[in-house]
Nucleic acid binder design. Structure first.
Length: 578
RNA sequence: GCCAAAGUAGCUCAGUGGUAGAGCAGCUCACUCGUAAUGAGCAGGUCGCGGGUUCAAUUCCCAUCUUUGGCUCCA
């Protein structure tokens, strides 16, 4: 048996123990399901009253008693009728029994006073569980069988491991996640804010956050020009005609901000940029000779996200997509996709993401467009990921109704996966807007249209970056790259002159002229995770030197200022982390 | 949208049926200091917003907004 199977058995058994504890503490509770999941387990209950965090303690104590009692887990196969009789007062279990396909065995597991309908397997006895290697983590709501039409049950999440050391490691990992939380760091580093009174899900980029965004955007724009893109700008609102034609008013209306009426027309704030880029395309008749078109825009869009779905920078109502639309002829498709993917990988690598996984989604049941085109497009996507040597999974039928796609997910510094890039074919909009070009033979043909975003949205990407770097950005992205710290007042003028000199090099520099002690200034710069701190006093002033304190704590005293400048240039230009 | 919890000073948080408190940040003054917090003082809050109960509500109740953890959703 693999370690994973063993762990999942422990977790599943732990879920049963928890259910027993809950039933003993809260008689009358209806139990639903309780599987093992990644890192732990949960069980869904229909409880006589809501639970509090204090209840988790009580349940934990009860679970420890059950574990200590060392009762065996006993499997028994029963008939459907027996099972129904056993669970006659458990409506969710009855529903589950009815869902078991005819002819499949129905098994139950019993430990102590608790019997559950369960396929198993379980550990032999609660002796095999470790009373100090589990922890109940949270109480949450969850729909019965995941359907929002069904009643909402109370879910208790827990984590369980083979020994206390593993549990501690996992809890440390959770603490690390908390430390990296972009909402917390966003406040501490003064990067951005959200204002409930001014509208939820709308992001305010503070100067320090804006510097990072500026660095990202500058890089993004110059790379797009280098890679054969043109940049465009389009409006933020459009008349209903645009959204009727695109079809968004038909299938996406509930996610759009409501219309504004003006001159007897309805105007909508854009939830996406594509129809606008299409208007540019339609402005003139196109020849195959002009192809391909690659139009990119940092386009700000607004979407109505359900209140409960909002989450820091990760899920917002207004955001800027690093969007581009490619219009290509059928014979350019393969090469273009390869290029997009290569470009995408380059961008992600530039931001320190090395571990990248691709997901290709193919044609769903309900789709628009010629199946042959779907085939060709999907083949182009596969060819591209293979050419790039990317690991990939295929999500059969997981594409949007309008075309197949590749999503790229990156692993961050602590192994969490984030979806960033997406490349999607669109067989819907060219049809709806009747896009054409004149081919070699003089006939009008339909171009292929490809949507792509490399970073996803700047807001979300920013959130991911904050968590990836835990706020300690590589120098090329740091809001302040260098903090000058004069030792005493006599070094103030010199420090100001040095600041000017470093700024002339293009560096982002601050000088701390506050009345704080030098130690406090170092502490403050360190807390802001500034990569370079320059300590300036008599010695440095005398010989045009700097004493460098690096963010990591390393010190190099008496460095020639010119050498320091060269070193910082090198680190910034190479986009290295410090 | 659903279940649950929370909302007190700029931040982190304490507290109470009798109109609020700490630390940090801010401001003022003194100190000018050699690698993660100098000291003293001052100022700062309709206790999320609306309603109800009460002699009295920040505290109890209802409603609402927002946030958090999940669920659903993410074309």
């Amino acid at each position: 048996m693999s370690d994973n199977e063993k762990l999942s058995m422990i977790r599943h058994s732990m879920a049963h123990v928890m259910a027993q504890a809950v039933l003993e503490l809260f008689p009358g509770t209806k139990i639903a399901i309780g599987p093992s999941i990644e890192n732990g387990f949960y069980y869904d209950f229909d409880l006589p009253r809501p639970l509090t965090d204090a209840d988790l303690e009580t349940i934990t104590e009860k679970m420890k008693e059950i574990i200590a009692s060392g009762v065996p887990f006993e499997r028994k196969e029963v008939s459907r009728a027996e099972a129904k009789a056993l669970f006659s007062d458990q409506p969710y279990k009855l529903e589950l029994i009815d869902a078991i396909p005819e002819g499949e065995t129905v098994s139950i597991y019993t430990q102590g006073s608790f019997t559950d309908l369960c396929r198993g397997p379980h550990v032999e006895s609660t002796k095999k569980l470790h009373a100090d290697a589990f922890k109940l983590l949270s109480i949450a709501g969850a729909y019965w069988r995941g359907n929002e039409k069904n009643p909402m049950l109370t879910r208790i999440y827990g984590t369980a491991w083979t020994n206390p050391k593993e549990l501690r490691l996992y809890l440390d990992y959770l603490a690390d996640i908390e430390k990296r939380d972009h909402r917390k760091l966003g406040k501490e580093l003064d990067l951005f804010s959200l204002h409930e009174e001014a509208g939820p899900g709308l992001v305010y980029w503070h100067p320090r956050g804006a510097r990072i965004r500026q660095a990202i955007e500058d890089f993004w724009r110059s790379e797009h020009y280098k890679n054969g893109y043109e940049l465009v700008y389009t409006p933020h609102v459009g008349r209903s005609w645009l959204w009727e034609t695109s079809g968004h008013l038909g299938f996406y209306k509930e996610s759009m901000y409501p219309p504004m009426e003006m001159d007897k027309s309805d105007y909508y704030v854009k939830p996406m940029n594509c129809p606008f880029h299409i208007m540019i395309y339609k402005n003139t008749k196109h020849s195959y000779r002009e192809f391909p078109f690659r139009w990119a825009e940092l386009g700000t869009v607004y979407r109505y996200e359900k209140a409960g779905a909002l989450h820091g920078l990760m899920r917002v109502r207004g955001f800027t997509q690093d969007d581009a639309h490619l219009f290509v002829t059928p014979d350019q498709m393969d090469d273009e996709i390869i290029e997009v993917l290569r470009f995408s990988m380059f961008m992600l690598h530039s931001f320190g993401f090395e571990d990248i996984h691709a997901y290709i989604s193919t044609r769903p049941e309900h789709s628009v467009g010629d199946p042959e085109k779907w085939e060709a497009a999907t083949a182009a996507l596969k060819k591209a990921v293979e050419k790039e040597g990317l690991k990939y999974d295929i999500d059969e039928g997981g594409g949007a109704f309008y075309g197949p796609k590749i999503d790229l997910k990156v692993k961050d510094a602590i192994g969490r996966e984030w979806q960033l890039s997406t490349v999607q074919f669109d067989f819907n909009l060219p049809e709806r807007f009747d896009l054409t070009f004149v081919d070699k033979d003089g006939t009008e043909k339909r171009p292929y249209m490809i949507h792509r975003a490399l970073l996803g949205s700047l807001e979300r990407f920013f959130g991911v970056l904050i968590e990836h770097y835990a706020g300690a950005f590589p120098p090329w992205l740091s809001p302040d790259q260098i903090a000058i710290i004069p030792v005493g007042e006599n070094a103030y003028d010199y420090s100001k002159a040095l600041e000017k000199r470093l700024k002339a090099e293009g560096f982002r520099v601050v000088t701390d002229l506050s009345s704080d002690r030098m130690n406090a200034k170092i502490r403050n710069a360190q807390k802001m995770k500034t990569p370079y701190m320059l300590i300036i006093g008599e010695k440095e002033m005398a010989d045009d030197l700097v004493s460098v304190r690096y963010r990591g704590g390393k010190q190099v005293n008496g460095m020639k200022t010119a050498d320091f400048i060269a070193e910082v240039h090198k680190t910034i230009d190479s986009k290295e982390q410090l």
